[in-house]
Design a protein around this nucleic acid. Structure first.
Length: 573
RNA sequence: CGGGGUGUAGCGCAGCGGGUUAGCGCGCAUGGUUUGGGACCAUGAGGUCGGAGGUUCAAAUCCUCUCACCCCGACCA
């Protein structure tokens, strides 16, 4: 490609609204163009990168036995009602109505469609297992798009679905995909961390996310430095510190004027926060829930939501709490009736707690479970925090932020039962197909790659992702010998299938060098009267300060070698 | 949805206690001089000042409403 023909325009300054590095660089390098909030066009360079990513993904999935299909974006809304996921997705589901008043939606994902599809294709255990995937545009009406390509409303995504006859088959498919994912991310030059993930309200067992560690990531990862434990904060567990277990004392009412929060109460009484019990009120699909947790801990709403199996969970308003006969700020688990109570298991880890008296300005001391009150449900609903102990080995946990690049998930029979996708086993009995699903946000992966590979001058593409492999730059192209040499090399590299960008623009060297640094092309090849004196061209890697002279003779072959994975001297990858 | 912010040329910004023809830098076009790290000179094009309504002799500037975009939170298989 000749740069003079390429539709691209580099910007010295990024638009004011871009504040993550990848967003700024994608715009400055002319890779994407924002059309509306969370809606982007991919320009020629950006599209090439995206296609490179897709290609890597295809190769790995095909290698793992995947078969590519293409399913419609436009889907009958009725199908989503049948699985109840119109509710689960709620407002994030883009919906529309056709001319016959039929309700349709734009697919945010494709479990319904593929299950419906497989239902018609699969009859017998002999038709299984299957791994089907597509790379398709997804639509989600996110409440808040952000970070350029990191969270958008329309985005390219690879989604693969596995279909097996039994759990063992599912486990095998899951492991196959795990390995394929690791290969994909490795080939993309992206170190990822595999973490345990929340499996959501819709059942399923195992679920893992592949995280690219980055400050701009939206997810918080809790992990252990000692053992391999790592989990999304939504899912993460921790060993909670044990409180004091003394002889149970008589409970007593104590005055706590104006002291509503745990901070205030503990401070006022001069006791540790872990000597208190905290009451939090939620509305789960509309009904009030009393949540109790030890004062030093926070409620993990994902865990709570899973425990309640509700679609919608929000903090309950004060009005709602008052109506239930509770006194916000001094609410007590004692003497509750008609309200579902969920407690974190931390309330058993300690004794003689301070809790509300359900009377303004008063708390109760020496409150003990189960002596003084009962709960409906007791389980772990606490947020795991750095500094707490690892649930496996007890070492202190640490946290980092990450971008979710991929997610794999054992679905089980949720969709196959819901939509009637079954097969006949060897005994001729009808059984539901066992499913798994596996997604990679391709656009987000592109942004993550930049978050991870850039410097103050611009993008530093890993070779397999770069829109072009070689940037060929004649300096002083008005000299006939320079122009001729550049054209010859350009043609020869091209004939070898090496993707070359020839900078034939009438620009000063500074402009060209800064542009190629911004675009992030891995290999820079400069030809000038100076290099021609020694019958050579100057070769420089994007991520290196040093350059070397490469003889014109045999140069194309040398570059071919260098670009092959693992062939770069001093670079293991 | 709650909180905060910004809308003036393609990008970054100034102007805003009302007052001619709305500026600056970068970019763009033309001509010329340059050519190893964002060159220089000259000339030029490009604006419904986000939109609507209002106040006024007069509105980018004051008032009301509205829209868009960004950030924090909520939300997010």
């Amino acid at each position: 490609m000749r740069m003079s023909q390429l539709m691209t325009k580099t910007l010295r300054q990024a638009p004011a609204e871009a504040d993550t590095v990848s967003h700024q660089l994608l715009v400055r390098a002319g890779m994407i163009h924002q059309v509306a909030s969370g809606i982007y066009a991919y320009l020629p360079l950006g599209w090439r990168v995206l296609r490179n990513l897709e290609q890597i993904i295809r190769e790995e999935l095909d290698g793992a036995g995947g078969q590519e299909v293409s399913m419609p974006v436009l889907q009958p809304h009725e199908l989503w009602q049948r699985t109840g996921r119109d509710q689960a997705f709620g407002q994030s589901l883009f919906t529309l109505t056709d001319r016959r008043e039929r309700r349709l939606c734009l697919g945010p994902t494709h479990e319904e469609i593929i299950t419906e599809l497989v239902r018609h294709q699969v009859r017998s255990y002999r038709d299984l297992p299957l791994l089907l995937y597509q790379i398709q545009t997804k639509f989600r009406d996110e409440p808040r798009p952000r970070g350029g390509l990191l969270r958008v409303r329309e985005f390219p995504m690879m989604d693969l679905y596995s279909f097996d006859t039994d759990e063992e088959g599912l486990d095998a498919s899951y492991q196959k995909m795990r390995r394929a994912y690791l290969n994909i991310f490795e080939r993309c030059g992206l170190p990822t961390m595999e973490v345990e993930a929340d499996s959501g309200a819709i059942g399923g067992k195992d679920s893992h996310e592949f995280m690219v560690v980055a400050e701009s990531g939206e997810d918080v990862i809790i992990r252990c430095r000692q053992c391999k434990y790592a989990a999304n904060m939504e899912k993460a567990q921790s060993a909670k510190a044990e409180g004091e277990h003394g002889p149970l004392k008589e409970k007593e009412e104590i005055a706590t004027p104006g002291m509503k929060s745990i901070e205030e109460v503990a401070g006022y009484l001069g006791i540790a926060k872990m000597q208190t019990l905290k009451a939090v009120f939620y509305a789960a699909d509309g009904s009030l829930i009393f949540v109790l947790i030890r004062g030093d801990l926070e409620v993990n709403e994902t865990k709570l939501k899973n425990a309640l199996k509700c679609a919608d969970l929000q903090l309950a308003g004060e009005e709602r709490v008052r109506q239930a006969g509770l006194v916000a700020g001094w609410a007590s688990p004692i003497g509750l009736s008609g309200v579902r109570t969920v407690a974190d298991d931390s309330i058993k880890m300690g004794s003689n707690f301070v809790a509300g008296a359900n009377r303004p300005d008063y708390h109760l001391s020496n409150v003990n479970y189960p002596r003084d009150f009962q709960v409906d449900t007791m389980l772990d609903i606490a947020v795991a925090q750095p500094g707490q102990g690892c649930p496996r080995c007890g070492s202190p946990l640490v946290s980092t932020r990450g971008i979710e690049a991929g997610h794999i998930f054992k679905l089980g029979t949720v969709f196959s039962e819901g939509l009637g996708a079954s097969f006949l086993d060897q005994k001729g009995e009808t059984r539901p197909i066992i499913m798994g699903c596996y997604g990679i946000g391709v656009g987000r992966l592109m942004a993550a790659a930049i978050e991870q590979n850039h410097d103050d001058k611009g993008i530093v593409w890993p070779v397999p992702l770069s829109p072009y492999h070689v940037y060929l730059c004649p300096l002083g192209a008005d000299k006939a010998d320079v122009a001729t040499a550049a054209e010859e090399i350009y043609a020869e590299l091209g004939s070898k299938g090496i993707e070359v960008l020839l900078d034939d623009r009438q620009e000063s060297p500074g402009v060209k060098f800064n542009d190629v640094d911004l675009l992030g092309i891995p290999l820079r090849l400069v030809i000038s009267p100076r290099t021609l004196k020694s019958k050579s061209a100057e070769l420089k890697w994007r991520d290196s300060e040093q350059s070397e002279l490469l003889p014109l003779e045999g140069m194309v072959r040398r570059i071919e070698e260098l670009l092959r994975p693992g062939n770069r001297p001093g670079h293991p990858q």
